[in-house]
């Protein structure tokens, strides 16, 4: 084992995440290599010193907290909005995604420089493309303010980072779709490496299903202009639409990673294969 390999494995060594065989090889190297040994020992000392910052004690108030939380359950009256925000010039990706809660079927598609997210039959989307700016009532007006607030402070962030902000306001169903939305952004930027990494990470957390779920026929959906009707493809987990192409996340046994396969529309069956 070379010095470079040992240095690369230092985090694994320091935190005991190294497999037995590698550990043995590293140890053998450390016995003979003074400089690597010195590095390792000095980092070990540093790590030990970190323990000199003790934790802060957690209050034993969880019963109270639980009661407080249940007391906050409220039903704000739905309101209709039009989001009137000037174009966020800082956003390179040019997209802001806005989600409502309580989604049943969430569909994401790219369309002419904007992105449409629809929940069930209702398009719920905010983009910098004025033509696509629509926004509908949600059960959580705080989310709107939250988005606005984030927009104020985060105009310089790229699309994915902004999505991260909104991310933790979503329920698990939307969480999956948001991740796919981020993937789409990455695809647009042709960052295939990131895509496979992200899909892998999704699989680790169980967000992205390897097996397609049941197929759901989606009704046609008007966008901003009522004359443009379009049939949505069958929606299944792991399936995204980008620039009128449908992609399916497929697990590759050999590489151990997910890949996005482009599907083709079968005219006769009116389904994507």
């Amino acid at each position: 084992m070379q010095c470079d390999d040992v240095i690369r494995l230092l985090p694994d060594m320091l935190y005991n995440e190294i497999d037995a065989q590698s550990r043995e090889q590293v140890s053998e190297h450390l016995v003979t290599c003074a400089s690597c040994w010195a590095e390792y020992e000095s980092f070990k000392r540093t790590v030990q010193v970190l323990d000199q910052w003790p934790p802060t004690e957690a209050p034993a108030d969880t019963a109270e907290l639980a009661r407080l939380l249940e007391g906050t359950a409220s039903r704000p009256t739905p309101r209709h909005w039009i989001l009137r925000r000037p174009v966020l010039s800082g956003l390179a990706a040019g997209l802001i995604l806005f989600l409502g809660l309580l989604a049943l079927n969430v569909h994401v598609s790219a369309h002419d420089g904007g992105l449409i997210l629809s929940i069930g039959r209702r398009p719920v989307v905010a983009t910098t493309d004025a033509n696509l700016l629509t926004q509908q009532a949600t059960d959580n007006p705080d989310l709107i303010r939250y988005v606005d607030d984030r927009v104020e402070h985060s105009a310089s962030l790229a699309g994915e980072a902004l999505v991260e902000y909104i991310h933790d306001w979503t329920v698990a169903q939307e969480q999956r779709q948001l991740e796919l939305f981020t993937l789409m952004n990455q695809l647009r930027q042709q960052d295939v490496g990131q895509v496979t990494m992200r899909l892998n990470a999704l699989e680790e957390t169980g967000i992205l299903a390897r097996q397609p779920g049941s197929s759901v026929k989606n009704p046609s959906m008007p966008y901003g202009q009522p004359d443009r009707q379009r049939t949505m493809p069958d929606w299944q987990p792991g399936r995204v639409v980008i620039d009128n192409h449908v992609y399916q996340a497929v697990y590759n046994e050999q590489t151990g990673q997910f890949e996005l396969q482009k599907l083709t529309f079968q005219e006769d069956s009116e389904m994507y294969q």
Binding site: L102, V171, A172, Q173, Q175, T205, G206, I207, A209
Partner: peptide
């Protein structure tokens, strides 16, 4: 209310 059991 909508947390999926498969997610960690």
């Amino acid at each position: 209310p909508a947390f999926r059991a498969e997610s960690r």
